[in-house]
Write a protein that binds this DNA or RNA. Structure first.
Length: 261
DNA sequence: ATTGAGACCTGTCGGC
DNA sequence: TGCCGACAGGTCTCAA
């Protein structure tokens, strides 16, 4: 959608998780999208005004795109339930943001606000980038008394991991979700073996997820190795453990007590 | 500063 | 069938 401009913007509420910024429609209308990027779980659209449209899908947000030829004067776009924002683009496309739980976010940031953003500016490395490795992970976990599970969900340690992929990566690495984060590093922040295994497991889990997401059938039918598999046999070859579930920080953790140490 | 618990919302699913 | 509680892939805030 780069190079398309916002011809019109419909706003059907004044807030999602937070209020929309002041003059949201006026500031967006007429602007051209020059760049599209992702950082952690945020989407960033760079605008011709040099502002940035920041978007987050929360838990239940989604975008749908209707092309020009799917719509007509006789049957124009009609916002459905939970279609909170609708973008009418100069390309003819209509883009609707739907979000039943409204945990999503949209904001408009000036270049200065983007650079100093209290969340964005503190995000950790992208897990699939070379900057994320055993050393980076060890440094970030050094001295942390919290659990490995909580540390990996902390977007300042590594950016973009959510509950499922943290659970999957910890199983892949053979590390207990309850284990103290500091134990994967030496006191000076150098990586122990566990840090290398964990960094590699995170990359592998995400690479596989990306590959699956490119195949609609594989994606729909896909399940995970331990997530949502309470009571099933541990999938690790040679392990005869049973997957357990427990609450950690209010969210479900799935793990094998036999092979995750 | 760090940490853990609770809050924010609506929809869906399983059990009675 | 309908009702009810538990739970959902994410942050943020607050209190210790």
């Amino acid at each position: 959608m780069t190079n398309a401009a916002f011809d019109a913007v419909e706003l059907h509420r004044r807030d999602l998780r937070r209020p929309f910024p002041r003059r949201f429609r006026a500031r967006l209308t007429g602007q051209t999208v020059l760049t599209l990027a992702r950082r952690a779980k945020y989407l960033l659209a760079g605008l011709s005004s040099s502002e940035t449209l920041l978007m987050h899908l929360g838990m239940s947000g989604s975008f749908s795109v209707e092309s020009q030829d799917a719509l007509s004067a006789a049957a124009p776009f009609e916002a459905g339930l939970h279609d909170h924002v609708v973008f009418h683009m100069s390309s003819g496309a209509t883009i609707a943001y739907n979000d039943p739980r409204r945990f999503g976010v949209m904001d408009l940031l000036t270049a200065a606000e983007l650079a100093t953003h209290p969340v964005l500016s503190k995000l950790g490395p992208e897990p699939l980038s070379p900057a994320f490795d055993a050393l980076a992970l060890a440094r970030a976990c050094k001295g942390k008394t919290t659990s490995l599970k909580a540390a990996l969900l902390d977007q300042r340690v590594v950016a973009g991991l959510g509950n499922i992929y943290v659970v999957e990566a910890l199983h892949r690495a053979g590390l207990s979700p309850q284990r103290r984060a500091s134990t994967i590093a030496t006191p000076s922040g150098l990586p122990r073996d566990a840090a290398g295994r964990l960094a590699a497991a995170i990359k592998r889990v995400l690479e596989e997820a990306v590959a699956r997401s490119l195949d609609a059938d594989a994606y729909r039918s896909s399940r995970f190795r331990v997530y949502d598999r309470e009571g099933e046999r541990c999938p690790r070859s040679g392990c005869s453990g049973v997957v357990r579930r427990r609450a950690q920080g209010g969210r479900s953790t799935f793990y094998c007590p036999a092979c995750q140490v």
